[in-house]
Write a protein that binds this DNA or RNA. Structure first.
Lengths: 138, 138
DNA sequence: TTATGTGCAAAACATTTGCAGGAGT
DNA sequence: ACTCCTGCAAATGTTTTGCACATAA
């Protein structure tokens, strides 16, 4: 990420970004906190929130406002869509081509100045659907 | 909405649904609470949450898990997409044809059992963009 | 050196829940 | 009557914030 003149390259910031880049699981702030804490045991949860927010603002990472109670974070900033398991809450990427054209369509029919769009599929992941079968059998 | 045998037709339930049907603004639970309270001043916020949740489960209304900190509710249950103003948080319907086919595509390429999808556009509403112009002028 | 960042703890918000009394069927 | 539901208040979970100290530049 590029650090603006007044934005300092701190250890906390580097490690948060490094840890987020290691995973593809779209962790919540708390999950990032747990990951980072293994390397920086004294880091505060507030610092994690502040930095994730800051990086999302500068565009270094993505803040995912998907369903569920917690926001999630993604180091992959190229546009892509997501799928969320309604049973366990897990969020995965889904490899469907991004529709660049629908933003133009939206701009034509709406009063809004369009900035973009996001698609969230919902479903049941394979882990959850197999554990459901077990429950039915038992 | 249809009430199941064990689900009672209470005054609170009726009025919450009536009030939600009066608006197209996708109110938050708190906004519904304020609307309903004008007719039922002693209703509790917990009752509003419980009933909105229940109606969303039975499919009588939609619970919108859009961006922002609060969930929103919609009495229009036919599939449709939304647009959210990143400045004021307002959520409007956007009249773009629902893509029924992409659920099939998603089912083919993913391990998930697909239940559906939702598209959320983000942008700046006309009110917010005109107030921004004023700020620039002043 | 000095503005920016951090750790800690408290506060703020949104939502859920336990329980005693109330109401629909 | 017998459940289910409600109001109230307390609890919970997530995110934000104030402040004194630390640290990058």
């Amino acid at each position: 990420m590029q650090f603006t003149p007044q934005m300092r390259l701190t250890t906390q910031r580097q490690i948060i970004l490094e840890e987020l880049r290691k995973v593809t699981s779209h962790p919540t702030a708390n999950e990032v906190y747990d990951m980072v804490r293994k390397r920086l045991p004294r880091i505060g949860l507030g610092t994690v929130y502040r930095n994730l927010e800051l990086m999302a603002e500068t565009g270094a990472i993505l803040k995912l406002e998907v369903g569920g109670t917690q926001k999630r974070f993604d180091a992959t900033t190229a546009p892509h869509y997501h799928i969320r398991c309604i049973s366990c809450g897990k969020v995965d990427d889904i490899d469907i081509p991004v529709m660049t054209d629908i933003d133009k369509t939206a701009a034509e029919i709406s009063q809004y100045q369009i900035l973009g769009h996001h698609i969230e599929f919902s479903g049941v992941c394979s882990t959850c659907s197999s554990s459901k079968e077990e429950t039915l059998v038992n």
